[in-house]
Nucleic acid binder design. Structure first.
Length: 415
RNA sequence: GUGGGUGUAGCUCAGUUGGUUAGAGCGCUGGUUUGUGGAGCCGGAGGUCGCGGGUUCGAUCCCCGUCACUCACCCCA
C-alpha cells in the first residue's frame, strides 16, 4: 500500500475543524494587534536560508530539504518563515513605510529531522514579524500577542522564559569570558559540548546533559556582560511584561538555535508535551535585515508550532451547527424531483444534502441520521403526484406536509 | 545520525507455556415483512497474525535480519 512520506501527517476531517479554529484565532488576534497577513513561497533559493539562519546551525547543516532546480540552481523547502518574509519585504520595498511593518504568516515548514512526539518533517507555524523599531514596547506587544494566542485557545500551565543574548558585540565579549571559564573544565563536558567549545560555545549553556549543567552552574551569566543599552532595553521589556501582568521567568540559559537572534529572546513551554515542549518562541533579529542586504533595521518576531498546539487542545472544538436538511428522494419520479429540490435549497443558501448510496426510504433516513440532519424532506412518487413533500423533524419525528413549491421559502422563513 | 519499545480484522486491543476452524468490543453490512432513521434482537463480510529467512514433525508465538510506526537522545516550533 502507498503510504505518506515519513514524518508527514494527514489532517483528517475530524481534526480539520480543530485546525480551522486555531487558524481563525491566529488571524483574528493578529489583526487585532495590527499585523497584516503575508503569503510567501514555500521554497526559495538555498542561499537565503544559509545566510540568514547560519551556516553552522543544525537546520542548515543537516535538516534542509534542498534540491536542484532544472537549471541547476539550488532550491530549499522553507525550514522557517522569517527569512522568506524578510526577503519579500526587501524585494517589495515594504520597509519604506511611515509605521512599523507588522506582518504575520501561517503555513507549513519542512525540516528533515527524526520524527517523534510533537516533531514532524512537515509542520505548520503561525508567526509574526515587526520590523522598523527597537522600542522595547514592540517586544512586549509581540510577546503579549503570543501569550494572548495561547490564552485564547485555553492552553494551561504555560511558562514564558525570558532572556537577552545581547548584541553581536556584547556576545563577543561574553563568549571570550565563557571560554576562559570553561578552558580548564573541558573534561567535565559531554563530547558534544567539547566540540561546541570551538564552534558555538553559547549552546553549551543550553545542554541538557547533567554533567554539563553542573559544570556550567558557576559560569558567568550573559546578562551581566551586556552593554548598558542592551541591559536597559531588556529591563524595559521585562517592566512592560509586568505592567501587562504577563508572568515570566528569567532563564539565562535560553539561547536560540538560529544565528540571527539578538537581544530579547523568549520561549513558551508546556509541561504536557514530552520532550518537544516548546510551543512558541522568538526574539529580536536586529542584524538580519542587513545581512540580507537591506537597510540596517531592528526587528522582532515569533513562531508557533501549530501541531504542538493542537496536541494540547483537549476541549472539543464545536462549531455552531448550521441546520442540515436531508433530502430523501426515492422512486422513479421522486428521486429526480428531489435532486432538483436539493439544488434549489442550496441555491437559496440552505444547508442541504442527500446520499446516493441508498435508494430506499429506510436507507435514506438512516443516512440522514448518520449525517446528523435536523430535518429530512421526504419525496417519493406519491408526493410527486400530489405536489407535496413531507418535512420530518428527525428529533421529534413530527411530520408536516408542505407544498413542494413553497418548501424553500418556508425554510428560509423558519417555516 | 544513535538508542529503546511496538507491529494480530477498518479502529482499539485480547490470545496461543509452539499444535488442527485466530477472538472480543466498536465500526461496516443484511434481516427484524409492504414507503420512515437511531435502540434491542438475530445473521454476515472482513485477517498470508508487518515482510524475509532460520530452528522444528509443526511457527502468529522461539531466533536472526529487514521494514514500518513510536518514544527518547540530538535539535527545535
Amino acid at each position: 500500500m502507498l503510504r505518506s512520506v515519513k514524518g508527514l501527517k494527514d489532517i483528517l476531517p475530524h481534526q480539520a475543524t480543530q485546525w480551522q479554529h486555531v487558524e481563525t484565532v491566529a488571524r483574528t488576534l493578529a489583526a487585532q494587534y495590527g499585523f497584516s497577513e503575508i503569503r510567501i513561497p514555500i521554497f526559495e533559493f538555498t542561499e537565503l536560508y544559509a545566510r540568514s539562519i547560519g551556516g553552522t546551525t543544525d537546520i542548515v547543516e543537516k535538516e534542509m530539504y534542498t534540491f536542484p532546480d532544472r537549471d541547476g540552481s539550488s532550491l530549499t523547502l522553507r525550514p522557517e518563515g522569517t527569512a522568506g518574509v524578510v526577503r519579500a519585504v526587501l524585494e517589495h520595498k515594504l520597509l519604506d513605510s511611515p509605521t512599523t511593518r507588522k506582518l504575520f504568516y501561517l503555513g507549513q515548514m519542512f525540516r528533515h529531522e527524526r520524527p517523534q512526539a510533537g516533531r514532524y518533517r512537515q509542520f505548520h507555524q503561525f508567526g509574526v514579524e515587526a520590523m522598523g523599531t527597537e522600542d522595547p514596547l514592540i517586544d512586549v506587544e509581540v510577546i503579549s500577542l503570543l501569550w494572548q494566542f495561547f490564552s485564547a485557545l485555553g492552553l494551561k500551565d504555560l511558562t514564558l522564559h525570558m532572556n537577552s543574548i545581547g548584541t553581536i558585540d556584547d556576545r563577543k565579549g561574553y563568549v571570550h569570558t565563557l571560554k576562559e571559564f570553561l578552558a580548564q573544565k573541558l573534561n567535565s563536558l559531554c563530547g558534544n559540548c567539547q566540540r561546541r567549545y570551538s564552534t558555538n560555545p553559547l549552546r553549551i549553556l543550553d545542554c541538557k546533559v547533567p554533567l554539563c549543567q553542573e559544570t556550567t552552574k558557576e559560569a558567568p551569566i550573559l546578562i551581566d556582560y551586556l552593554s548598558d543599552p542592551s541591559k536597559l532595553h531588556f529591563q524595559a521589556v521585562l517592566d512592560g511584561l509586568t505592567t501587562l501582568e504577563i508572568p515570566f521567568s528569567l532563564n539565562h540559559r535560553l539561547v536560540r538555535g538560529l544565528d540571527y537572534y539578538t537581544r530579547t529572546t523568549f520561549e513558551i513551554t508546556s509541561p504536557h508535551l514530552g520532550a518537544q515542549s516548546t510551543i512558541g518562541a522568538g526574539g529580536r533579529y536586529d542584524g538580519l535585515i542587513q545581512v540580507l542586504q537591506g537597510p540596517s533595521t531592528p526587528a522582532i518576531g515569533f513562531a508557533v508550532g501549530l501541531e504542538r498546539v493542537t496536541l494540547l487542545l483537549t476541549e472539543e472544538v464545536t462549531s455552531k451547527p448550521v441546520p442540515l436538511f436531508f433530502v430523501a428522494g426515492f422512486g422513479e419520479r421522486g428521486k429526480p424531483s428531489a435532486f432538483k429540490l436539493l439544488h434549489s435549497l442550496r441555491k437559496a443558501g440552505i444547508r442541504g444534502d442527500t446520499d446516493h448510496k441508498g435508494n430506499t426510504l429506510k436507507a435514506l433516513l438512516r443516512s440522514a441520521d448518520k449525517l446528523g440532519a435536523e430535518y429530512s424532506i421526504i419525496l417519493g412518487d406519491d408526493e410527486v403526484s400530489s405536489g407535496n413533500v413531507i418535512l420530518r423533524n428527525m428529533q421529534t419525528k413530527d411530520q408536516e406536509i408542505l407544498n413542494i413549491n413553497e418548501i424553500t421559502q418556508r425554510i428560509q422563513r423558519g417555516f
